[in-house]
């Protein structure tokens, strides 16, 4: 049995990063699925692992690791298997730069839109009292606010507009980057590709006005190359919802 357990939701955004990194390294792990829409991440069992109540988290023996991008770096450093960081120091800098840009600037905007159009409507139908109790159990105050907004559909027009601006700009910057290099930040497949793929794999479906064969040929070429990796197929097969299904839809329509 593996001494690694990964607590994750769908192969998507933050959860998908360590899933795919482990898969690429060929490191066996015990998968512990956390149903985010059932608020599993705020239940006592999981809070005992990560008191912040966010996913993903990974245990390796008695070590507990959190923060998806940092977990990926740990996985790459700690285990044998293909090196997922480029050999050149300036390339490594660029890989780290892109991951931060995604984690802190672009990713939150993807999330806000995703929560307003997908997460909120999925959860909203439940019994209001049950939902109120679930929100009260959320440890991080900023997450309580985010969940309330998602459930009530009360994101402000200005903040949504700003998120849409960032998504459009971020896609344009990624398209330009992939015109310069084969992969994000370098000419080899790296943690930056794993990071960014997890938030962009469904763009042609979710943002057809911004991304697609005509508008972003470089992104499409890169998506296709990453889609074809065996580790990606195996990771996306672990998904249980429609999110993961979108992967095969795009895969089919890609050329």
């Amino acid at each position: 049995m593996s001494d690694i357990t990964l607590y994750h939701w769908e192969p998507n955004a933050n959860s998908g990063k360590p899933m795919l990194a482990l898969m690429e390294k060929g490191v066996p792990f015990t998968s512990h699925y956390i149903d985010m829409l059932a608020f599993d991440q705020h239940k006592p069992d999981y809070l005992a692992v990560n008191p912040q109540g966010t996913i993903p988290a990974m245990t390796h023996g008695d070590r507990v690791l959190v923060e998806s991008t940092a977990i990926m770096e740990y996985v790459n450093d700690a285990f044998a298997g293909p090196d997922l960081m480029p050999g050149d120091a300036q390339d490594r800098w660029r890989v780290r730069w892109w991951m931060k840009f995604m984690d802190q600037w672009l990713g939150p905007s993807f999330s806000m839109i995703g929560w307003s159009v997908f997460v909120g409507p999925m959860v909203r139908k439940r019994d209001p009292e049950e939902l109120a109790a679930a929100i009260d159990r959320i440890p991080l105050p900023e997450r309580r606010i985010a969940w309330r907004k998602a459930i009530n559909g009360s994101f402000g027009e200005a903040e949504l507009a700003e998120s849409r601006r960032r998504v459009a700009l971020g896609i344009a910057l990624l398209e330009a980057e992939l015109g310069k290099r084969d992969y994000v930040g370098s000419d080899s497949y790296s943690l930056a590709d794993i990071n960014i793929f997890n938030s962009t794999y469904s763009l042609p479906l979710s943002q057809p006005d911004l991304a697609g064969r005509d508008k972003t040929p470089n992104i499409m070429r890169w998506l296709k190359r990453v889609y074809q990796r065996e580790a990606v197929a195996k990771t996306w097969a672990m998904g249980r919802t429609d999110l993961a299904h979108r992967y095969s839809l795009i895969m089919e329509g890609i050329d």
Binding site: E73, A78, R92, W93
Partner: peptide, 27 residues
């Protein structure tokens, strides 16, 4: 990241070599 770059080019000692200690520094 610029500090990491400088440290790595110099073969430096400003980042723990152990993977877990490195994760702790990044965090």
């Amino acid at each position: 990241f610029v500090a990491q770059y400088l440290d790595e080019v110099a073969g430096g000692a400003l980042q723990p070599r152990d993977a877990y200690a490195h994760w702790q520094m990044l965090m």
